[in-house]
Each structure stands twice: as C-alpha cells, then as structure tokens.
C-alpha cells in the first residue's frame, strides 16, 4: 500500500482539484476499487464537495481541554490571571472568567488556584467521518471554526484511512493535504511514500514551494512538483523548473490556466469527468500517468 500526499505551501494552488481528478482517473484504470481517499485539510475540507460522499459513520473529535472557573467557590483573588501567559483570564468588575478561545489548555491556573475552583474540561471540537464516495472510500473530518489541534485530527484521519486500506488491501491512498508548512502539514506528510507539490508560477507560489519542499525533505518524503496555471507567468514556471532541477526534484506536469476547472467545481465534478477534453483535463491525465509509476515504485 502506498500513500500519496498532495501539498503546496501556498493555499489555493489547486490541490483539491488535482486530488479529485486523480481520484477519478484512478477509478477508471487498473486501480479501480483499489484506491482510498483522505482529506487532510480539516480546516477547509473541500474534497467532499466534488466526491459527493455518502457517510457511513461519524465520530466526534475531542481536542484539547480548556479551563473553567467555578463561580460558586471562586474567591476572586486573581492568582489565576497572574500565571496565564495566554491572556485567557479576564477580569470584569472583580469577577474572573476564562476565554475558551484564548485558553491554551495548559492548566497552570488549575494548579495555582488556592480554592480548587478551576477545572479542565474536554471539548468536542470537530468530527471525523468515514464515507463511501463515487471513486472509493473517503476519510474526512471537520474541525469546528477556530479550534486547535488540527494536527491531531489529521493524524486521526490518516490512521483510519491507512487501517482501512490495509484491511481491504487497497493499493493506493491519495491524501489531499493542507496549505502551509506547520503542524497539520507535518501530520499529513510524515510517513507518506510520495508527496506531489502543486504550485503556481507566481512570486508567492515560488516562495512557498521552497518552504514546502524543505518541510517534505525534512521528513524524508520524496517529492514531485507540478505547476498549475503554468502559462500565466511563464518566467515563473521556468524559475520553478530550474529550481527543482537543481535539487533533483522532477517537475512532472504543467497544467494550463483553464476556467473549466472552476466550472467543474460548481458542477461538483472532477474536471477530468466534467470535460475530459478540456486543456486542464488533458494535462491532469498526463500528470497522473507520470505520477503513478513514481508512487508504485517508491521505496516502502
């Protein structure tokens, strides 16, 4: 079983559209019924908007804890505020309350309180779901707006996806990753067999690609690059290819700027299904044909 994670650094470069196209293309070939999908962008879980999944089960996701003050026993001494480094304890007219959004869950106040009036409370901050989709099983999750611990939720999604893939002897897991280079990205990339970085030839895309590549390499995962909207700024595309060549990273595809991609999104379809002969679809088919051998031959 091999895991491919789609990443980018910069957001909005087309990770999810690429993932959806790969899911569609894989389901048409010899890998039909042998793939499994995971959406690891739990802040902005968009893959399901294209895959139209039918939920089989949903589990609450319990994130960290937050401190809560018991008003009945609080003596309003303010000791809790003095130890809080997160500005989460707020005094209004001699009464102290905890802002659950600011609370980091460190419990310093719990141990500081002289009257044991503060307790930690576990919070349900999202959900983790398993579904059937048109192209194979899908593991996905939603983090409630403003919550932390998205890395833990990503880890949970990936573990559940991996387990089902092993149980059902599915050959390929395609993981739609989050933007950035932080905790959720590290959770999405660690242990993957191959990373495909979808970038765009813009000054921002190039800058963020470099950081994303460093992150992927830091965790020892082999990387490929594809350039989306490659024709918008050809000089940028050439810079990316030169950069990658210098680092020995294959540039495996160039997808042209094509408004069909947005139309397919509105239709809730993978662009390769929506209009197979659109320029972006043709490029995505060629891209998948190049990526797949790298994935299947990636060292275990």
């Amino acid at each position: 079983m091999k895991q491919l994670v789609i990443l980018s650094g910069k957001g909005g470069t087309g990770k999810t559209s690429v993932t959806a196209a790969f899911a569609h293309l894989a389901s048409q070939g010899p890998l039909a019924d042998r793939i499994l999908l995971a959406d690891a962008d739990v802040d902005a879980a968009n893959l399901e908007l294209v895959l139209q999944p039918r939920r089989l089960d949903t589990q609450p996701f319990r994130g960290g804890q937050v401190a809560v003050i018991n008003e009945d026993t609080c003596v309003h001494c303010g000791d809790c505020e003095s130890v809080c480094r997160f500005d989460a304890i707020i005094e209004t007219d001699g009464r102290w309350t905890i802002d659950p959004i600011a609370c980091d869950g460190c419990a310093a106040c719990v141990y500081q309180c002289p009257t044991d009036s503060i307790a930690m409370q576990e919070q349900t901050v999202g959900e983790c779901a398993r579904s059937d989709s048109r192209y194979g099983p899908l593991h996905h999750a939603h983090l409630s707006p403003g919550q932390e611990n998205s890395g833990k939720l990503v880890t949970q999604v990936r573990q559940r996806a991996r387990q089902q893939a092993l149980d059902e002897q599915r050959q390929v897991v395609i993981v739609d990753g989050p933007p950035g280079i932080g905790c959720p990205v590290i959770a999405a990339v660690s242990g993957a067999d191959l990373a495909l970085l979808v970038t765009e030839p813009t000054v921002s895309g190039i800058h963020d690609l470099r950081r994303a590549l460093q992150t992927v390499q830091h965790f020892g995962v082999p990387a490929l690059v594809c350039i989306n909207k490659a024709d918008v700024y050809p000089a940028g595309a050439r810079e990316i290819e030169a950069d990658c060549a210098a680092q020995g990273i294959p540039t495996v595809g160039r997808i042209p700027f094509d408004l069909t991609v947005a139309s397919a999104m509105v239709a809730g379809e993978a662009v390769t299904l929506y209009r197979p002969d659109a320029p972006a679809s043709l490029a995505l088919s060629a891209l998948w044909a190049r990526v797949l051998p790298f994935l299947l031959e990636a060292p275990a």
């Binding site: 611990n149 890395g151 833990k152 880890t155 905790c183 590290i186 959770a187 660690s190 242990g191 965790f219």
Partner: peptide, 8 residues
C-alpha cells in the same frame, strides 16, 4: 522504531 506522530 518510528518517527513519532504529530498531534499538536
């Protein structure tokens, strides 16, 4: 035996 998981 493995690189550890990330959950923070």
């Amino acid at each position: 035996t493995h690189g550890g998981h990330h959950g923070g």
